[in-house]
Design a protein around this nucleic acid. Structure first.
Length: 822
RNA sequence: GCCGAUGUGGCGGAACUGGUAUACGCGCACGACUCAAAAUCGUGUGGGGAAACCCAUGUGGGUUCGAUUCCCACCAUCGGCACCA
């Protein structure tokens, strides 16, 4: 039989569709298993060879689970909001809605051609108003809980995309998407207080089964540091040259608070350093600083990340003229301002201990500040002596949730001037109390939710979704507002609370919003295909399916999507909407598929491999196998079309074997059965550990041996087809049918291995003399130690190294090796 | 600089808790088939040597009867973070 993959693959894909066997059942008695892959952004370039690596891997697992008797949910959807579609719209004038729909159609066709066992009935799309209705509803939950707040803050601004970026989206001072330069800009932004969950995001990592490197990266990103906050009193004595400075400062600020992880070094603190941001705040509060300080601040704040990085080696700073008292030893020490102290971290001020801190020493040496040699004191003693208090700091920042762009979910809030005025006199209302409580529990003064959100009114549930209006132009406005701001009909609305004139928020959400809860959307879609808002009860379905049992995705999402969605789910859990605090029980990650030259595949470099062409020429089964065989699953591996050819040859061999099925002699059949059971064991174990490459190699060994023997029983062969099915489902089904199978292979059970049948009759072991391999002998696995040693010494290759010498020692490791020392 | 990972043939890579290093695949060489080529099949394939043997898992040490695997030091590459007090 010629192996006509095109015909075979079409045929089985149709059968799967018609039989609907990949549909997850909410009413099943079987135990559930939820497999998840990161749903793709449907880009205009079409499917990338990297996508199927993760998808086929989870497909193998999903298919195996089904055969093991689980009710499997393996869904797919589209994370379709985002910049590329919008930039394309700006360039061509086409609607992002249309472009996205086309891209999705392409992706869908391509994914289907891989024969992935997705439950397509639960397909979701983040840009569907029925979907983002919920994204908006959840945002309002954050808002109502006081976790969404608007704040003027310096944000990372991409000059060419004209968009504010989250810290996570800035890489080496450059925009993650376009690679262009970024600068700091002051903007009113919606923020979500993820920092409130920092501790739980950290602690709960202990409760989940994530790859260790993923946990480590998240821990580092959250960056918890324990230490102390210590106040340094500003002294009234005035340094001659800066008389005005200190005097003017005193009325409002009588001390400077610093955060340190080393309060035990406080005796060695010989000066204080404050950040340019804090210094600027002082000036705003009425500090009459010297011109030198003002000049320094201005320069420091203007510098963007790139410049700062370039100059990171050389420390700069100026004295403020202000002095403080070291509370531990009552020494009067100067305060400097320098940009090596960050405004966003800690209190924005540090005590400098040149004796113990490299950065402080470098600074002290450069500016001839004193470097003391003082003893350490214990943590508790230092806290007591300095009147400080123990605190914890995080590197994690609150989530910048606003985008001034078109192609995202509109933030469903309305600004009402009238209500703002009203409520300013209503301090003590319930909402305000809730917000104040959160504010009080917070240490980070720059990331604290404000309690003046009162003019912002939630859009009521029955008015959701706020649908993206049609616009003429997709560019952000020159002032940096979203194009929505130009649609007056849309912006001007009625206040849902007082009925007066009000304006809609024109910011949209970041593309991370929709992906923060999509694993729930798949479940909801199984209950109600149109996501009826609030009227449907999803609780029992959530109870049934959550948490996700196994989630595979890219390492690049560890500190973005993965952290955001854990946070989002925890919040929903706290609000009583979902039953589990951690959304993903297990998280693994795949390595990148690189181009043949070992660099990243990209359309612009022209080194991208087209999945359509590969499937057309070699078949989906070959491509699936190669995606998994190419290298260890977690490592990046360069693509090789030659390697793909090897998979095709393997499948052709399988076809050949199936055509020449012949009952074997008893001895041969025993040998094949033995190898089959060894293969079952290896493939079964390897899949669980994502060692797909060695699982496939074991199946190749099996087929090679069968081919050599020119015989295999039908029973053994169909067992083998069940093993092969998750990897190469089209061909496996075809061969199974030709052998008289009437059901789909997917409805068969996964083979289990019999260790008795798998047991070797004869084992070949090595014989070493003085650590060098000198011979091999065949033994029975149950052979007595003495007889093995004897035959080792008598082996003709070994003899000549042993003869005439005195044997000092013989080591025998059962069924492994004989080691002789002479 | 810090954190994490990785280093094995011409290439992708195997090797379980220390036990025959180089499985499996690619490539290559030779042979068969063919007028010829492709495809296919067969044989071989870490390096050196005529052979006995010797040398090889980034480098240098160590532990051990035995080390790709464990320990110490170093080098290189990749990923993440980056003046986080």
């Amino acid at each position: 039989m010629p192996y006509n993959h095109q015909q075979i693959e079409k045929k089985w894909q149709k059968k799967w569709d018609e039989s609907d066997i990949f549909r997850a059942r909410d009413d099943s008695d079987k135990p559930k298993y939820y497999c998840l892959i990161e749903f793709p952004y449907p880009s205009g370039a079409g499917l990338h060879m990297g996508h199927p690596r993760s998808y086929t891997a989870m497909d193998v697992i999903a298919r195996k689970r089904r055969m093991e008797g689980f009710n499997v949910l393996y869904p797919i959807g589209w994370d379709a909001f985002g910049l590329p579609a919008e930039n394309y719209a700006i360039k061509t004038g086409r609607k992002p809605q249309d472009v996205t729909a086309e891209n999705i159609a392409t992706f869908k066709r391509q994914l289907k051609s891989f024969g992935l066992s997705f439950d397509w009935s639960r397909e979701v799309n983040t840009t569907d108003p029925e979907y983002y209705k919920w994204t908006q509803w959840m945002f309002l939950e954050f808002f109502k809980a006081g976790l969404a707040y608007k704040k003027k803050m310096p944000i990372n601004w991409c000059v060419s995309c004209k968009i504010g970026l989250a810290n996570e989206e800035v890489v080496d001072g450059k925009c993650e998407r376009c690679g262009g330069p970024t600068e700091k800009r002051e903007k009113e932004q919606w923020m979500i207080a993820i920092t409130k969950y920092a501790d739980r995001l950290l602690e709960d990592l202990e409760t989940v089964d994530y790859l260790e490197k993923i946990k480590t990266q998240q821990k580092n990103w959250i960056g918890r540091s324990e230490g102390a906050e210590i106040s340094f009193v500003i002294v009234s004595e005035i340094e001659q040259s800066n008389e005005i400075a200190s005097v003017a400062l005193l009325p409002r600020n009588d001390n400077i608070s610093v955060f340190t992880t080393r309060p035990d070094t406080i005796l060695g603190a010989t000066f204080l350093v404050i950040s340019p941001e804090l210094a600027q705040q002082w000036i705003a509060d009425g500090w009459m600083s010297s011109e030198e300080v003002k000049g320094y601040i201005e320069q420091a704040l203007k510098r963007d990340n790139k410049e700062r990085e370039a100059e990171s080696k050389e420390k700069t700073g100026v004295p403020t003229g202000v002095f403080v008292i070291n509370p531990a030893n009552k020494e009067k020490i100067p305060v400097w301002v320098a940009d090596y102290v960050l405004g966003e971290y800690g209190t924005g001020a540090v005590m400098a201990v040149p004796q113990h801190d490299d950065r402080d020493r470098e600074f002290a040496e450069k500016f001839s500040l004193p470097i003391a040699d003082r003893p350490l004191i214990s943590f508790d003693e230092s806290i007591e002596k300095s009147g400080g208090k123990k605190t914890v700091q995080y590197k994690l920042r609150d989530w910048v949730f606003s985008r001034q762009r078109y192609w995202g979910e509109p933030i469903p809030l309305v600004w009402c001037e009238e209500c703002a005025k009203q409520s300013s006199s209503l301090r003590g209302s319930k909402a305000t109390e809730a917000i104040s409580e959160i504010a009080a529990s917070s240490l980070d003064k720059l990331g604290t939710p404000r309690n003046d959100m009162n003019g912002w009114i939630s859009v009521p549930d029955d008015q959701l979704p706020i649908v993206l209006p049609e616009v003429e132009k997709y560019e952000p406005t020159e002032t940096g507002e979203s194009p929505l701001a130009a649609i007056h009909d849309w912006v001007n609305t009625k206040c849902p609370k007082c009925g007066g004139k009000a304006k809609r928020e024109t910011d949209t959400m970041p593309n991370w919003a929709g992906s923060s809860w999509y694993f729930l959307a798949y479940i909801m879609k199984g209950v109600s295909s149109n996501y009826q808002l609030l009227t449907t009860n999803y609780q029992s379905a959530f109870n049934h399916w959550m948490p996700v049992d196994w989630y595979n995705g890219g390492m690049e999402h560890t500190t973005l999507h993965l952290l955001y969605s854990r946070f989002w789910n925890k919040f929903l859990f706290d609000r009583g909407h979902v039953p589990v605090s951690e959304p993903y029980a297990k998280r693994t990650s795949h390595g990148l598929v690189l181009a043949e030259d070992g660099t990243k595949m990209s359309k612009s470099k022209g080194n991208a491999v087209n999945p359509d062409e590969m499937i057309n020429e070699y078949g989906a089964d070959s491509v699936r196998l190669y995606e998994l065989f190419m290298g260890p699953f977690g490592e990046p591996v360069p693509w090789s079309t030659n390697g793909l050819v090897g998979m095709r040859r393997f499948l052709e061999k399988v076809v050949e074997v199936s055509l020449s099925l012949r009952e074997a002699s008893k001895a041969s059949d025993e040998a094949i059965t033995r190898l089959l059971h060894q293969t079952i064991k290896k493939v079964t174990d390897d899949i669980e550990h994502m060692r797909f490459n060695t699982a496939i190699s074991q199946m190749m060994i099996f087929v090679n041996v069968v081919k050599e023997n020119e015989s295999i029983s039908k029973e053994n062969f169909t067992t083998f087809l069940r093993l092969l099915c998750p990897f190469a489902p089209h061909l496996s089904n075809e061969l199974y049918e030709q052998l008289g199978g009437t059901e789909l292979l997917e409805q068969q059970i996964w083979p289990t291995h019999d260790s008795e049948l798998a047991k070797e009759q004869i084992i070949t072991i090595a014989v070493q003399v003085n650590g060098k391999l000198r011979g091999i002998i065949d033994i029975s696995p149950d052979a007595e130690e003495e007889s093995v040693k004897q035959s080792a010494i008598e082996n003709e290759h070994v003899k000549k190294y042993v003869e005439g010498k005195s044997v000092k020692k013989i080591v025998y490791v059962k069924n492994k090796i004989v080691s002789i020392v002479v």
